[in-house]
Amino acid sequence: MEIREKILTNLRAVKERTPLIHHITNYVTVNDCANIVLALGGSPVMADDQEEVAEMVGFASALVLNIGTLNSRTIESMLLAGKRAKELGVPVVLDPVGVGATHLRTNTARKLIQELNPDVIRGNMSEICVLAGEEVAIKGVDSLADEQNGAVIAQKLASSLKCVIAITGKTDVVSDGEQLCLLDNGHRILADVTGTGCMTSSLVGTYCGAAKDYFSAAIAGIATMGLAGEIAQASLRHGEGIGTFRARLFDSIYHLTPEQLAQESKVRHE
């Protein structure tokens, strides 16, 4: 099946199945992540207490782990939920926010990868470079790495970890170690809104919860955010800025059709 057809099929599957997506995520963007899942057609749950995470995973179609605001309690919850997800065959999506910025983030990301073997890891170029053992500069949780070798790094890391690696940036890169896809949707204004990366990981998780092909699910999630960003930005009028853009980003995803996503996604399957 050609990649555009898979993207179309994946969005149809989300709309039909309304997958429950369990998040253990950061408190900066938790509300946006919940709403972006709803906008796409999924159902979000944000449960992070150790007493219920394993049970909640039992009801979920996918688990999204985001290390944006780490603490010792949520780290343990991520490990408990992730191990239960792997027992049940529930896909795990890891967003290693700011990995490399501090020892806590780096050590936690590596422990989650080692113990949980995530199905998809989605990050910016700096974050993926850190996981790949590359030397990069980090500014808080923002990427300072260039994207020149993104395809090579994604492919090698995906092969090494036996998972899908998704790098978001000016040109997005998705690889499962064998296949490689480049995406060119999006607009630079997406970087001016806090949480668009986190929301993209939630979109990827939603697609993973509806389709078992996690490579095409990652592509669909990233393409959805990129295309919605283009649509939302194009709708702005004089005097409107990132606040209006943020609201219209949700609207654009809410109204996005499978056919529109497939036709307007700028996807290159290498």
Rank of each mutant, 00 (worst) to 15 (best):
S143C: 08
I113D: 01
R17Q: 14
V14A: 11
R12N: 15
I222H: 04
S77Q: 07
G226N: 05
D146G: 03
N124I: 04
Q50L: 12
G229L: 12
A191F: 04
I153C: 01
N107F: 11
D48R: 11
T69W: 00
D213G: 05
E5A: 14
N107D: 14
N185W: 12
L80V: 15
A132S: 15
V30P: 00
K83I: 02
C181S: 14
S159M: 02
K162N: 13
R4P: 00
S61R: 14
N71G: 08
P91W: 10
T196A: 06
L256I: 05
R4C: 09
V174Y: 12
I3T: 14
L183Q: 05
L8P: 00
A262R: 01
F245S: 06
H255A: 01
A191D: 08
C129S: 11
V130L: 03
A81M: 06
K212I: 01
T108C: 07
A132V: 10
I167Y: 03
V97H: 10
P96V: 00
H255K: 12
L261N: 10
I153P: 00
S201H: 05
R188G: 03
T29A: 13
C208F: 11
Q263H: 12
V174R: 10
E264G: 00
I36T: 11
L261E: 10
I113S: 02
V64F: 03
S126C: 07
A109C: 15
L40P: 07
K266N: 12
T257H: 09
F59D: 00
G140F: 11
Q233C: 03
E51C: 04
T74L: 04
I121W: 08
L11Y: 11
S252R: 05
V204R: 11
V136G: 09
A218K: 13
A47L: 09
V174M: 10
P44Y: 13
G150E: 02
Q50M: 07
R268Q: 06
R12K: 15
M78A: 10
I75K: 10
I128T: 02
V30F: 13
G68T: 06
R73M: 13
N26Q: 10
P96Y: 05
